[in-house]
Amino acid sequence: MSTISGNAAAVAVRPVEGRSRLVWSLLDAWVVCRRNLIQTWRVPELLVFSTIQPVMFVLLFVYVFGGAINVGPGVDYVDFLMPGIFIQTAIFGSMVTGVGLAEDRQRGLIDRFRSLPMSRGALLAGRTLSDLFRNVFVVAIMLLVGIAVGFRFGDTTVPAVLVGFALMLLFSYAFAWVSAVIGLSVRNAEAAQSAGFIWVFPLTFASSAFVPVSTMPGWLQAFAEHQPITVTIDATRALFLGGPVASALLQSLAWCVGMLVVFVPWCIRVYRRSTGG
């Protein structure tokens, strides 16, 4: 709580001249982002438990199911699996945004921030940005886990790999705004967590994360091939392993832009309505 008070004081005493409103909004967002990062650093269990679940998925699918899943000639299952695990980890990490906002509102912290002379959108931008930074750390850990179990980049280039990770983080950032809408629309953090995972889980498993879409029933393939998680995994997989990437990449970028265009304004409206502002 002292950290929040200190940050609040830092915002409250700022001068009002000399910088544009946009600059102050960005600085306000950074204050909120820094507050959330400090909170995560002081509670390392948040990061530990964020990595345990994806590590368990890796071990389960590689060593239990991997021998029974055929992903095509010349492709090791672990190489097929890890891009899906990366995306899954990033998406599940973005669900923390909604849980965190619901918890802050439940504890009255959002009302405290609203009483300060700061940008109305700073809380939302700072929250999503801090969760993006946390996702970078968790995905980096998962990359090390993947390498440990045999994952290797294929016939690709360093720029392509970097584009793959950038796409992954952009996708998780777009999903964070979806999660933020959910978190601000429910009564508490427990409801936000349940409401988030109840649709993310089936959407993730009905994708190309763990098995090729071609192995699914015909009625499911039409949905699975074009949903946002599948096209993002396919684009990332092609960037990491080599292969045609343009179509999946463009579809994934379109989904990211679409989610941001829809859910950022929606989140702001829900935030103002839920806090009476």
Rank of each mutant, 00 (worst) to 15 (best):
L109V: 12
S2Y: 08
Y63N: 10
R34L: 15
L203S: 03
A246M: 14
V257E: 00
V75C: 09
S252C: 02
F175N: 00
V23I: 08
V178M: 06
W24C: 05
I141W: 07
W199A: 00
G126I: 05
L144I: 13
Y77P: 11
I110V: 15
V43H: 10
A222H: 09
S207G: 05
V75K: 07
T230K: 04
P73D: 15
Y77W: 07
L109S: 09
Y271A: 01
G121S: 15
L123T: 13
V55A: 15
G154Q: 01
A224S: 04
L26H: 08
R120Y: 05
A176Q: 06
P44V: 04
G150C: 10
I147A: 14
W41T: 10
T275R: 05
V96W: 08
F263G: 04
R105C: 12
L37T: 00
L241F: 09
L241W: 06
F133C: 12
V96M: 13
L241T: 05
S5I: 11
F210M: 06
P83C: 08
V178A: 08
L184G: 11
R134K: 05
Y77T: 06
V23Q: 14
F137Q: 12
A160K: 10
R112Q: 08
T232P: 10
Q193Y: 13
L26V: 13
L220V: 15
R42Q: 13
F61I: 08
D111I: 03
A102Y: 00
L109C: 02
V213M: 02
G242T: 02
